[in-house]
Amino acid sequence: MIDVTRLTKTFWLPHRVDALVDVSLSIAAGEVVVVIGPSGSGKSTLLRCLNRLETADSGHVFIDGIDVLDPKTNINRVRAEVGMVFQSFNLFPHKSVLDNITLAQRVVRRRSRAEALQKAEALLAKVGIREKAGAYPDQLSGGQQQRVAIARALAMDPKVMLFDEPTSALDPEMIGEVLEVMKTLAREGMTMVCVTHEMGFAREVADRVVFMDAGAIVETGTPEHFFVNPEHERTKLFLSQILK
């Protein structure tokens, strides 16, 4: 489904940071991969390189066999198939919840108004906020906004969902409702790549955990293996700090 080979990315401003160093990763259809690591380890950059929100310096990303980094690739087509959920939600503040979810369906998928609305309402029911359809983003709590953002991404019928620290900007009591939606998605067989600090979620839902540090993948494995028997010292140290 997703094939990443030898991906490299360096930021030069404000100072040199090797965000990705020779990263290779393969993700099968239906797999849920959780990427963890200390801040600045390159996990968000890796995620953003998958749909070319960030352009890698070298290496390859293939999604469903399509070379994402090839300039000749119509990136908009790829992105329509790859849903993304951001840490800061990034809902469109000038549009109602319903319009947030129907906009890309209408503009990109060219669905009729009725079809887009039907889809939006079904997804709002799925993420449990049907009653907020007419509200504007700033009238919603953080948890509700993030669930709308997930619905907005799902409305495109993506083959893959990318989550970039979806619960990091949330008040603690709202994290659960967002994770619940993500767990439902995982159970339904959605291919997911999640950058998160929620170890409980990783342990419960992930098929595979990827640990990154200093732009490189240090260790990957099943949650059982990863949390119980980590091989690398760096992983052990990180886990001991985060699970304290």
Binding site: N51, L53, R79, E81, M84, L91, A153, M156
Partner: peptide, 8 residues
């Protein structure tokens, strides 16, 4: 980024 990630 949100708009572009939706394929716009």
């Amino acid at each position: 980024e949100a708009a572009r990630s939706l394929g716009m």
